[in-house]
């Protein structure tokens, strides 16, 4: 099965709506197919907000349960990814609020940054680098665009940002990662 970002957007949307329809009918196969096609995008997006791997894992599972349970509420208007990512985003922020009840917004905006002492040595060099060097919004945009295959326009809507901001943030974040990697390879 192709990953979400390898599809043409319209084909992708039709496919996702088909699976959501199937989940609405409580079809097991539809949920399995839906999981396979969306797992990278959803996990990547969660990782761009949540720093703790175990929490990310919990949210990841909860996300699918919630999507399955709420499939009947999806309004067919050709924007399945926006619906999916909104649910995922809300779960992440619910989790953050639970974690730190009295947190002020400034802290909330920075919790996604990977704690250097916590860094596990896995083949996620790039990911870790990305997490350290770019802001929460930049991480969101990169994950949604690169892993989720979402268009800048879709991302702008989802994150409530002007299109030009999404574009410039994306370019800046990629550029920053480029710089870091360049130095890393020396």
């Amino acid at each position: 099965m192709l990953a979400l970002n390898e599809y043409d957007p319209l084909v992708r949307n039709n496919l996702l709506e088909e699976y959501i329809d199937g989940m609405k009918e409580q079809n097991r196969k539809a949920l399995v197919d839906f999981y396979e096609i969306t797992k990278d995008a959803i996990y990547g997006f969660i990782l761009s907000i949540i720093k703790n791997k175990e929490e990310a894992l919990d949210i990841f599972q909860d996300a699918y349960i919630k999507l399955y349970e709420n499939a009947s509420k999806y309004q067919k208007e050709g924007k399945p990814l926006a619906w999916i990512m909104t649910i995922v985003k809300n779960l992440c922020y619910e989790n953050l609020r639970k974690q730190k009840n009295n947190v002020d917004l400034e802290v909330l905006n920075n919790v996604g940054v990977v704690d250097k002492h916590n860094k596990k040595v896995e083949d996620k060099m790039v990911l870790d680098l990305a997490f350290q060097m770019i802001t929460l919004e930049e991480r969101n945009i990169i994950m949604l665009h690169v892993i989720g295959g979402m268009k800048y326009r879709e991302i702008a809507k989802l994150l409530n940002l002007p299109l030009s901001t999404v574009l410039s943030k994306y370019h800046r974040a990629i550029k920053r990662m480029k710089e870091i990697l360049k130095e890393d390879m020396k």
């Binding site: 990953a3 990278d40 996990y43 990782l47 996620k124 790039v126 990911l127 990305a130 690169v146 892993i147």
Partner: peptide, 9 residues
């Protein structure tokens, strides 16, 4: 990024 995320899911 793609490989990194896909390997860590």
């Amino acid at each position: 990024l793609n490989t990194a995320v896909s390997n860590s899911v």
